[in-house]
Structures are given as C-alpha cells and as structure tokens.
Design a protein around this nucleic acid. Structure first.
Lengths: 103, 103
DNA sequence: TCGATCCGTAAGCGGTAACTTACGGAAGGT
DNA sequence: ACCTTCCGTAAGTTACCGCTTACGGATCGA
C-alpha cells in the first residue's frame, strides 16, 4: 500500500498527525483513539510499510515516530499537481490558449 | 469522500494528473485509460464532490478540468505534516529533548 | 425525424479494507 | 518462577470500493 492510500484512512491520518508531533507507544496511541490496540498496531504496520513511520524498541514498548522518507515522495507529487493545476487554472480564467502536452 | 480518499485511488490520481495538465472530455480520458467510460464518469463524480475538478458543457461533451479548491486544503494539511515531521525528526537524530504538546 | 455520439446512473459482482476478539511471545518487576 | 504489561498476528465479520454491462436522457447533423 502506498503513502496515498495509507494517509487516506482518517484513523491512520490521525495517528500519523500525532506521531508527527512527538513519538508515542502503541498503547498510548490506542488510549487516545476510539479504536482497539490491535487496530492501532495494524494501522502502524501499514504506515511503516509506506515508510511513513519508524519504530524504536524501549523495553517492552515500541516507540513509533513519523518518518520523513515516505512523506517526501508524496509531497513532491502533490506539489507537482499543485503547480500544474494552478497554471492550467490560470489559463482557463484568462481564457488563454490550451496547454501543450508535456507530461 | 474527502480529497485524501479521492486521490488515494491510482486510476483517480492518474485522471487528476492528466486534467491538471489540460482539460479533457470523459471519452477522451476513457480512451487513454484501461477502464471503461462509465468507470471514468464515476471517478470524475468522486473528484468533483471533493472539489478537485470542475465541469464545463461544450455541446454534448463535458470538459473536465482540475480545480485548485480541493487541492488547497489537502496541500496545507500535508505541509503541516511535513514541517512537524521534519522538526520532530530533527530532534530525534540530534538526540534532543522530547517535544511539548501544542496540537 | 432519425441516427449517431456523448454522457450519467442503476444494478450487480468480486475483492478487500477496517474492525473486533482471541491467542501467544517477549521483557520487566518482585 | 510467576504475574503483569506491552505488543503483533490470526481468524472472522461487516461494509464499502471499483469495475462491468445495461439502459435512458440530451445534443448535434442530415
């Protein structure tokens, strides 16, 4: 599952948002959310597979933190959409000529 | 369905990517993609509900174009994730103090 | 008016995502 | 050694998503 699909789920996006503020354990996350601890574990696995989070062992606890790696690609692709959309939209409202195909 | 879920689907993201370059009709899009025309129509409805695309009638054809509106919100949220993740990650690799809760 | 083209939607199907409960392993304290 | 806490995974259920085919409305040309 890619980063787009990983962050599409509201619960997973909420988990990632919290981890982007500061690292937390699985139990801590579960206590803050309206889902069970196993559900959080499963969400974290998805986020980890998408390189959106990292894990660090601390005794029996697993401390998860946000990882820039997975987010970087996604951000770049979205920035591409953004600039292309703005340029295209600008031509439309200015009633300008249609765009040439370049991608 | 919000913009995150709308762009999570690969086919829908491909449609949006093409529309961000230049507007196209439903049939044109379908001819470029490995799915049927009704499927494209359904995808466009999702994108439209998320304010990611607009429609303009041109005879019997419906010309769809990328709309900055829906993308703006999503982009801002992702930029928030990005800066928070970077800041948090920086503290971690510097072995600095844990972050305070501020949202 | 008749046919062709463009399009949206309903109906139905197969796949899978998200959640729960149940279980078992690993580490720490006493 | 024993109990507790923390965690991941398997199994099963429910619900939704994406796709197809089929159908009907709308517009244009002859």
């Amino acid at each position: 599952m890619d980063a787009w699909s990983a962050l599409a789920d509201p619960t997973r996006r909420e988990i990632f948002a919290r981890l982007s503020v500061r690292p937390r354990s699985v139990t801590d996350l579960a206590s803050e959310l309206p889902v069970s601890r196993p559900a959080v574990s499963q969400h974290l696995k998805v986020l980890k597979d998408a390189d959106l989070v990292r894990v660090r062992a601390e005794g029996t606890r697993r401390i998860y933190s946000a990882d820039p790696a997975g987010l970087r690609e996604m951000r770049q692709e979205l920035e591409g959409f953004w600039s292309a959309t703005l340029a295209n939209f600008k031509r439309l409202v200015e009633d300008g000529p249609p765009a040439e195909e370049d991608g």
